[in-house]
């Protein structure tokens, strides 16, 4: 997921009192989720070391668990995830130019020795790093039946090692000070509780926008030209699953920002109900009108959450959205 898709205006007149428990957000939402990412990616690295054949069940199971953990933090795009482009290196998607398969194919064609060196692998294009590159290596027909299994194995091991290192670095940075900066504002980074809460709100809003516009919008395409092949992580059957995971994670965060907000709870409930009832794991249904309508309705229900956030939650944090401020250009 990419940064700053959504622009928000921070009013000069911030609210006097804030009912947001920032320490609880860090303790109960952010930290455990990054811990899960670090743990599952370490296991993924371990599995790839043990047996790296693409269709090896323990490896693919570890891949799914770790990818789940990533989607659960993919809305938290600030601070440690942005340092050293760690989040970009974990998740390079969408990829309209097909840079991921191109870069991977180039590494393989050249038997690039960069895979042997964990430090050097950090210099490889982010297109050939992270979960979406790993998905190609494990599931795409172009890669999953390799001519030279030895190199393919080394590449999978390099990618998983890099994923685990990035996840560990993000968790370390949170535990090594960033958590305190957010939990206890009044520092150079977050001078007030309102500033820290605004950062969290921006992350939440941007995460939901990404789910609507990109996770759902890309496969929807246009009515005349639906694009099922643009669904996220479709090769491993995860597109709808990502929508469910990200809605679940953003609901948890949203209810920290607006505890007990009935409209918010109802809006998330409707969206999750629709997602869970969809039975179209990679949005293949967008290609025909009835299936498309169901995905559109899901997208609308995500947009309904965004509207509640904008209208009811944003203003309590001194945030409003303007004509030019939203434009971003």
């Amino acid at each position: 997921m990419r940064l700053a898709m959504l622009a928000l205006v921070f009013l000069a007149t911030a609210p006097a009192a804030l009912a947001v428990d920032l320490a609880a957000i860090v303790r109960d939402h952010i930290t455990p989720r990054y811990q899960a990412l670090a743990t599952t990616t370490a296991l993924l690295e371990q599995q790839a070391k043990t047996a790296c054949a693409p269709q090896n069940p323990p490896l693919t199971a570890a891949y799914h668990r770790a990818f789940d953990a990533w989607v659960g933090v993919s809305h938290l795009r600030f601070g440690p995830s942005e340092a050293e482009d760690r989040a970009f290196a974990l998740a390079f998607w969408p990829d309209p130019r097909g840079a991921t398969p191109k870069t991977l194919a180039l590494l393989i064609r050249n038997s690039d020795p960069v895979v042997a060196d964990p430090v050097a692998y950090k210099t490889v294009s982010v297109a050939a790093r992270g979960f979406y590159a790993l998905e190609f290596l494990l599931y795409d027909p172009q890669f999953a039946a390799p001519e030279r299994p030895g190199y393919h194995c080394a590449l999978i091991q390099a990618v998983t090692r890099d994923i685990a290192a990035n996840a560990a670095a993000i968790l370390d940075a949170w535990q090594d000070g960033y958590a305190d900066l957010v939990s206890r504002p009044g520092n150079d980074l977050y001078r007030t509780e309102v500033e820290a809460a605004q950062q969290v709100f921006t992350a939440l809003s941007t995460g939901l926008e990404f789910t609507s516009v990109t996770r759902l919008g890309r496969p929807l395409g246009t009515f005349a030209r639906p694009r099922p092949n643009r669904a996220e992580a479709r090769r491993s059957g995860r597109a709808l699953h990502h929508v469910v995971l990200s809605l679940t994670a953003t609901r948890e965060l949203a209810l920290h920002l607006a505890p007990g907000n009935a409209r918010l709870i109802a809006a998330f409930g409707r969206a999750l109900d629709r997602a869970n009832a969809l039975d179209d794991p990679v949005f293949a249904g967008v290609a025909d009108p009835p299936g498309r309508l169901r995905v559109e309705v899901l997208q609308q229900s995500v947009d309904a959450i965004r509207q509640v956030l904008r209208q009811e939650v944003g203003p309590t944090l001194g945030i409003t959205a303007g004509f030019n401020a939203l434009d971003g250009d």
Partner: peptide, 14 residues
Amino acid sequence: THPETGRLKLNIPT
């Protein structure tokens, strides 16, 4: 950017 992904920024790291 790419028309397919609208205004999404595709190359922030580089």
